[in-house]
Amino acid sequence: MSYNHVDAAMRELIASFSCLEAADLLDRLARTAAAVTGTAYAGFVRVDALRLEADTIHTHAPPGDPQRVRRWLAGSGVLKELATVPVTVRLARDAAVGEPGFLATPLPLATRDHTFVWVAGRGFGDGDEHLLSRFATAAGRALEAASGLEAAVRLLRGVRAFCPAQPPDLPVGGDRIPG
């Protein structure tokens, strides 16, 4: 195969692996989690390795945040609870005291930090918990696959960087060694 073909093939492969944006994937997964559970709010929380802190890494909310879920997430203590528990967390809805209803389940990730997918905005039951758990498995696999593609792109760019401009023993446009 001539170098021109190798370069073109590498560029095509890198381009096809690079088309997945991590931020876009998180947004799509959050919007889908909200739709699957019949809510307007969803997102992801990452817990540090020592299980001391949890931070929101993505939040999907309707314009204007009518239930004030973003503020509730920051001030309610739910992030601290997610940092300390490795299991599903379900909190009842109580509009009188500003509790929007909350359900979070861990993503079964092998290669990433401890991450939860959460939904909020209504009361949740056992069926919702089961459904979100199954969704979390799919979301975890999607995030790991995206991470694998990002790693592959970095490796391929390294391979491409070390490909010679034109191998001296190959004629331009040819794939055979003269002789």
Rank of each mutant, 00 (worst) to 15 (best):
M1A: 15
M1T: 15
Y3D: 13
H5F: 10
V6K: 15
D7G: 10
A8N: 07
M10K: 11
R11M: 06
A15Q: 13
A30Y: 00
R31Q: 06
T32R: 15
G38R: 10
T39S: 10
T39C: 05
T39K: 02
T39P: 00
A40H: 08
A42W: 00
V45C: 05
R46K: 11
A49N: 04
L52Q: 14
T59L: 14
A61S: 14
P63Y: 10
R68G: 04
R70G: 11
R71D: 08
G75Y: 09
R93D: 09
A96E: 13
A96S: 13
F102C: 03
L103E: 03
L109A: 10
T111L: 12
D113N: 09
V117D: 02
V117Y: 00
G121A: 05
G121W: 02
R122W: 01
R122S: 04
R122Q: 09
D126V: 07
A136S: 08
G140Q: 02
L143Q: 10
A146D: 00
G148L: 06
G148E: 15
E150A: 15
V153M: 11
R154S: 14
L155R: 15
R157L: 12
G158I: 05
F162M: 11
A165T: 13
P167M: 07
L170D: 08
P171F: 01
G174A: 11
R176L: 09
I177V: 15
I177M: 06
G179D: 12
